[in-house]
Amino acid sequence: MKVTQEFTDIQQMDLLNKTLDMKNAGYRLAQICASRDTAGCFVLLYTFEKDGCLVSLRFINGGEPIESIGWLYGYAFLYENEMKDLFGMKVINMNMDFGGRFYQTAQPAPFTCGKNEGAEMDG
């Protein structure tokens, strides 16, 4: 079976419509990945899967709230709470919001620190 990977850049305001398209096309939500770019903005990658094909929607977030996709994919709350707890992002209208207590971390939003910040890990 042929497996493909596709990365598509979108605008944040198109997220819900594009996600709805994926849902209607029979894709499942495979993961949501957050990261920081060099400018300090968040980079979001929403990945969907169907028949071995991975389609990822990518957009840049400057810190403004992101609308939850939980009404389309009920289990998105896992990833959205992770985004909140590890990256300190704002996600609104979540179907299950743990209020920052999904991950019990020693420091808030630990994944936002730069490469040379935070606890020393390997000397």
């Binding site: 707890d85 743990f98 207590r101 999904f102 991950y103 019990q104 971390t105 630990p110 994944f111 490469k115 890990m121 390997d122």
Partner: peptide, 19 residues
């Protein structure tokens, strides 16, 4: 049932920036 995790979270995804 309300889960919470993170009691032994190691941040290994973050560690990739230093290894």
């Amino acid at each position: 049932a309300v889960p919470s995790i993170g009691f032994v979270h190691r941040g290994l995804e973050k560690l990739v920036e230093k290894k």
